[in-house]
Amino acid sequence: MSRREELLAAVTDHVLHEGLIGLTLRPLAAAIGTSDRMLLYHFDNRDALVSAVVAEVTARSTAAVRALPAAPSVRAAVNRLWVAYQEEPLFSCQSVYVQAAATGLIGREPYLTDARASNARWSAAIADYLVRSGAPKSRVERIVTLVDSALYGFHLDLTTDRPDELARGVDDLAQAAQRLAD
């Protein structure tokens, strides 16, 4: 592993634990045992570092989705995804993505291009999982759009709503996704 990869892993671990909002280089560097100059040497600037972290978070989250065993149906797959969203590593990964969106980072350059690439990788992982769980390839893109957007919203609601209420809503989503698959 190169020094840049080591630093990226350490920064990503830190961000997953501490969050992205308010991230500044000097305290970050101190927290991971390096200097802000070393971070700048390997990542050019804070924007490049944050983009790299978002890409690494996406890599970790897509790996977690790809590791999920196939479900017996699309409905079961959506419900399993929801359970996975509430556990590590997906919970923290989704939270970092929410923080990046909340701060406006992913909606403008230099982040927009990288965010779109990350979104494409994420959508591909979800599509692969749903196909392994019975979704037809001809309809999986529509199902992914519905499921991904809705689960993102349910994830946001975890801070204020009761998990049992959200689980019922997710199952309603899962039933709708199943109908799209049938």
Rank of each mutant, 00 (worst) to 15 (best):
D47F: 06
A29S: 00
L146S: 06
R121Y: 06
G169W: 00
A167K: 05
V83W: 13
Q86T: 11
N79I: 07
L40S: 01
A127Q: 09
D44K: 08
T160C: 05
H14E: 03
A181M: 01
A67E: 10
E56S: 01
D157V: 06
R168D: 10
P163C: 09
V147G: 04
L8V: 04
A76Y: 03
S123P: 04
T12N: 06
L112M: 09
Y97Q: 14
R37Y: 13
L7F: 02
Y97K: 13
L90I: 11
A10L: 05
A31W: 09
A84G: 05
S133Y: 11
L158N: 10
A127F: 11
Y152T: 15
Q99C: 05
A30I: 12
A70E: 08
S51T: 14
G19V: 07
P110K: 03
E109D: 10
R66E: 15
V98F: 14
L23M: 13
T103E: 15
S149Q: 13
R60W: 11
E18G: 10
A181E: 06
V53K: 05
G153K: 08
V50K: 01
L23F: 14
A117H: 14
L68S: 01
A29I: 07
V131N: 10
L49H: 09
A29E: 02
G153E: 12
P27N: 08
D114S: 13
D44L: 09
F91D: 05
V140L: 09
